[in-house]
């Protein structure tokens, strides 16, 4: 654990902040730790976490993806059309369909980024506009409400008692976290993702297949975008083509807040979860304390700004720490 915290300073910091915050909220409002509040906190943020772990993989590999929320919208819409055409379908078909479509969209990004060596932010901004424009044009902005029942029915998975039930999206979130953790921590491919984000030239020289690595990163992001999109329908019970726009930046902020580094090589699944949760808990806490919902964003923005500044106070102490280590090293 000590080792983990040492190599994951971002996660350690946010864990402390989150724990303190929850403690304060727990004391200030008894309903904070109630089963129903915890359940709704998780149910409402499951999709963000699914997207966050997808984005995490791209950030680890040194890229960025602005287009995933639009990608998720496209997947939602196409999946809905496929399912309607099939006359209903079921969860398995839905998952496969959303996953495959998501991976396809991710692969388009990867092909452009790796194939033409264009910086990822440009490509994903371009695909954001292209996909969003095409989606809105093709659908004329019409929502789909007539969806199969299995898709929109609330499915309780675990009951926390007292009216709090964790729903299917939370289970899928847990599975996505586990799968992503397994990919990035337990497979050689995952370690190559870190290496490529950390030092692309070094990775290339060591024999890492860099094009393949980028397809895996953006493909995984696409997969998570698709699955997240599928789950979002379960929560919202409708497919609205422009409903997810703007979520990409919120998720990005949460992932970076959770210790992932813009520029690659650093980040963890736990950090993503904590990053999303921190924003959610701040919002939840303000809600419980009866603060006007209109003030939420302001406080969240201020929290992130404070966190950024705090990060760099840390940096100062790390710099002095390094000098210490260096002289220590020489004394040995």
């Amino acid at each position: 654990m000590r080792d983990y915290l040492r190599t994951h300073e971002g996660e350690a910091r946010i864990l402390v902040v989150l724990a303190l915050l929850m403690l304060v909220l727990g004391i200030a409002s008894p309903s904070f730790f109630s089963a129903s509040n915890i359940a709704s906190l998780l149910n409402n943020n499951a999709v963000n976490v699914i997207w966050a772990v997808g984005l995490l993989v791209v950030l680890i590999a040194g890229g960025i993806d602005i287009s995933f929320a639009v990608g998720a919208s496209v997947v939602q819409y196409l999946t809905a059309l496929v399912l309607l055409w099939l006359g209903g379908g079921n969860w398995l078909i839905g998952l496969v369909c959303a996953g495959v479509l998501g991976i396809l969209i991710g692969s388009i990004n990867a092909a452009l980024i790796a194939g033409f060596r264009i910086i990822s932010i440009i490509i994903t901004i371009a695909t954001f506009n292209a996909l969003f424009g095409l989606l809105m044009f093709a659908t004329s902005g019409r929502s789909i409400y007539d969806l199969p029942d299995w898709w929109t029915d609330r499915i309780g998975v675990i009951s926390l008692g007292d009216g709090g039930t964790l729903t299917l999206p939370v289970a899928v979130m847990a599975a996505s976290m586990l799968a992503t953790w397994f990919l990035i921590s337990r497979t050689t491919t995952g370690r190559q993702l870190y290496a490529f984000g950390d030092n692309p030239e070094g990775a290339r020289r060591a024999g890492v297949a860099t094009v393949k690595i980028q397809f895996i990163a953006y493909g995984w992001m696409g997969l998570m975008a698709g699955i997240g999109g599928l789950m979002q329908v379960n929560i919202a019970q409708e497919v609205v083509p422009n409903a997810l726009i703007g979520r990409e930046l919120d998720v990005l902020a949460a992932v970076v807040l959770g210790g992932a580094r813009l520029g690659g090589g650093r980040g963890s699944v736990l950090g993503c979860f904590l990053g999303v949760l921190l924003v959610a808990v701040v919002q939840n806490g303000l809600n419980l304390m009866g603060v006007s919902p209109y003030a939420f964003k302001m406080v969240i923005g201020l929290t992130i700004l404070a966190a950024i500044s705090l990060t760099n106070v840390e940096l100062m102490s790390r710099l002095t720490g390094r000098t210490w280590r260096r002289s220590h090293d020489q004394n040995n």
Partner: peptide
């Protein structure tokens, strides 16, 4: 100033500022 003096990544700093200002506006 946050970018220059604290060395924060411009994407993160401006994103946070965006959320904050929108928040003030909504409030």
């Amino acid at each position: 100033a946050i970018i220059a003096w604290f060395g924060a990544h411009p994407i993160l700093a401006s994103l946070a500022m965006m959320i904050f200002l929108k928040g003030i506006g909504e409030f």
